[in-house]
Design a protein around this nucleic acid. Sequence first.
DNA 1: AATGAATGAGGATTCATTCAT
DNA 2: GATGAATGAATCCTCATTCAT
Lengths: 237, 237, 237, 237
Amino acid sequence: MSNAPRRADARRNRERILQAAFEAFAADGRLVPLDDIARRAGVGAGTVYRNFPTKEALFRAVVTTRIEQIVEDAEALRDADDPAGAFYGFFARVVERAMYNHALCDALADDLSGFDTCGVDDRFTAGLGVLLRRAQAAGAVRSDVDVQDVRALMVGAMHMERAHRREGRRGRMTLLASDALRPTTKRNETLDPRNGTRCEICGNPITPAPTGRPARYCSASCRQKAHRRKQAAAKSG
Amino acid sequence: MSNAPRRADARRNRERILQAAFEAFAADGRLVPLDDIARRAGVGAGTVYRNFPTKEALFRAVVTTRIEQIVEDAEALRDADDPAGAFYGFFARVVERAMYNHALCDALADDLSGFDTCGVDDRFTAGLGVLLRRAQAAGAVRSDVDVQDVRALMVGAMHMERAHRREGRRGRMTLLASDALRPTTKRNETLDPRNGTRCEICGNPITPAPTGRPARYCSASCRQKAHRRKQAAAKSG
Amino acid sequence: MSNAPRRADARRNRERILQAAFEAFAADGRLVPLDDIARRAGVGAGTVYRNFPTKEALFRAVVTTRIEQIVEDAEALRDADDPAGAFYGFFARVVERAMYNHALCDALADDLSGFDTCGVDDRFTAGLGVLLRRAQAAGAVRSDVDVQDVRALMVGAMHMERAHRREGRRGRMTLLASDALRPTTKRNETLDPRNGTRCEICGNPITPAPTGRPARYCSASCRQKAHRRKQAAAKSG
Amino acid sequence: MSNAPRRADARRNRERILQAAFEAFAADGRLVPLDDIARRAGVGAGTVYRNFPTKEALFRAVVTTRIEQIVEDAEALRDADDPAGAFYGFFARVVERAMYNHALCDALADDLSGFDTCGVDDRFTAGLGVLLRRAQAAGAVRSDVDVQDVRALMVGAMHMERAHRREGRRGRMTLLASDALRPTTKRNETLDPRNGTRCEICGNPITPAPTGRPARYCSASCRQKAHRRKQAAAKSG
DNA sequence: AATGAATGAGGATTCATTCAT
DNA sequence: GATGAATGAATCCTCATTCAT
């Protein structure tokens, strides 16, 4: 990126600011005082302003970075074998990432156009669109929704999760929201955990085997995805 | 209410403050400066404080009033002939009222307990619960969701509507969210307006007649409800 | 007084305001909001302003009233048989009345001249002066102090009492302050309660009798004074 | 102190704030608006808050600093040759410093415990206690008073001085208050300046010599102390 | 290039005083 | 005359942004 400073220590500072800002914005939204961010990053307030002209610009940079990761996720799934799993898994992961992250949530709800770090928004829409259309072609998603609908549904799901903190029900609202997208015949009646289990990744139902340890994921690929996802989460806080 | 002042001008002021606060909070959420509210109401800041001990108290009063109207709506539908229409219509109306109203939206998402204007939250939950259970008994709502799910879904729908401002699509996300609640066999595939139409009130599909002016509502009772709703909206701003 | 309104209810209001103000000022000093006083008096704020042009004026009126009572006390002692008892008893009573009364304390410390309720300050000084000179003539007070010294010493004693709240030591600092006024040979070495007792009223030492119930006051007249004082205290709160 | 900023200008500002606060609090007590202090210090309000988290904290810092100086004074006298002079001189100096200083006066009257700048209060009590006990052992202070009495008497003396502003009588009430502490036989009858003079430092009587310039201090050591005291006063404002 | 100090507008709240009812 | 509602200046404190070191 052109914004990256030449000197090594300056580059390091930029990273630390972004990281600190990410954490702070995630926890408290745009309201965190900039000084707090600077302190968490271990730099002076002035240094933040050297790197980002405005608090708002910092916010956008943070969010852009985050969405870029999401976009990469989407693009990696572009040719996945299982269009349904790819789509619903992506849906769930986006919600999971953003649901306790005020900043990201706002960003996905707002229009990101006007951001200087150009194109993330478009790339996000495009990536999601590919997954959506493939899933629709595979008959896994109803045909009367478009990519804007799905995006809005994601935003809604984030807020639902937040509005619904009940112990042990994390992800329940995401599943419910997904159901709005499934074609009639594919709908699960298994929201109630007593009625069966669903794959945490793609939301497909898991047929319980009569013997052996109960399956947690619907397939090997989903198990693998869950693993990678945990590692990523550990790293990015 | 016992809070109402005796003098006529004071009562008028109290109303103006509530009205101004309603508008301001609706537009910008809790963040609006109290001075702005006072100015919009055409009174001094002190007058606001005479009526409400705290900005937060004012916020709660505004929101409580609003929710009380909603609760009355719910309670009026308690014995409606058409449980499905009653439930989905109520769902849509709550979302409609709150979707551009940051204050109300926050209030429904948060827990309202702790509010001094006692019981609104509980009454809301209770009223919604009645509608939900009747609709479930009538087979119009899937049986694996409870009242907290529905409440969270409402909150989600409000945000979806906000995240999805496209001209002519108002209410689309509400319908989509509702679909998450319908049992498999009842699901509509008509979200796309080209594929058919649904009643704005209860969300039921409208079978287009080959002749005559296209129907907008599914029944006379829904037409009547829509009419009353418009009038109420006009009055309360 | 010329300030007294003609109508009976108005006069009653004036009294209630003065009483409420007395209590409020005594407890919290000049800082109490005027609205609080009005509420305690059971009248509107406007009524207070009808009677007293300013909060400050009300304060002065309250204090003046109070000091008038003290002045009457002094004037009643003008010809007392026991000049020493009269002086030291008066000293102790003034301190006792004012020590937890912020308002009165301030008033005695400040110069009251400039007050519209004319003459209290002068009358206080005059009354105290009489008692002082008679006690000096009787050899009970050192001759190198004047009335201003005594007044200042009273103010000091009030603050000492406040600064010295130890259980069971009420009045100790007043006695100590009095000692500064006694001529050398009359000084008590009995401040420590274990070393003997002193009359609560006039501060004279009480010679313990070998038999009978221990004496509390030095004379019948002091016992009587203490009695009257308790009754007065009960009435005025 | 660890609170001192590294940068020179910041340190200067901190000093100016403390100085301005000292003056303002001294003159008007805790009530001075913080903005006034800021203005007097020539800084913005924010700068004050950078240095002291609260107005109250600033007040405490000011007062603590002042009391620390006093404590040092007391500790320096711990082994003085002349216990009587040490005690009475210290007494007079504390009163002198605090008498027109509302802040310090309040602080000495209140309990300072709870202050974060730990121990000043205890150190003050301890230092005063040493001086008191030595003076008592030397027969210069009556034996029935304890350190709390003396502290309260100091507070009283400050208020007396304030209540007694007569030209040329500065310190008179302090001497009078001291007299309450002297054992009977040591009491001076020389409060009236016409009857003789007393050392400003230790309060001992000065026997006027028939010839030569009238003595102002009772001894060379007191003259020296007075000199040092003036210089210190000049420095600290 | 970094630091962290300074700024000062702005926001919530209080309260003496005035004034419509 | 009484009431209590309205006013708005004043006060404490916060925080985005600028700037001296």
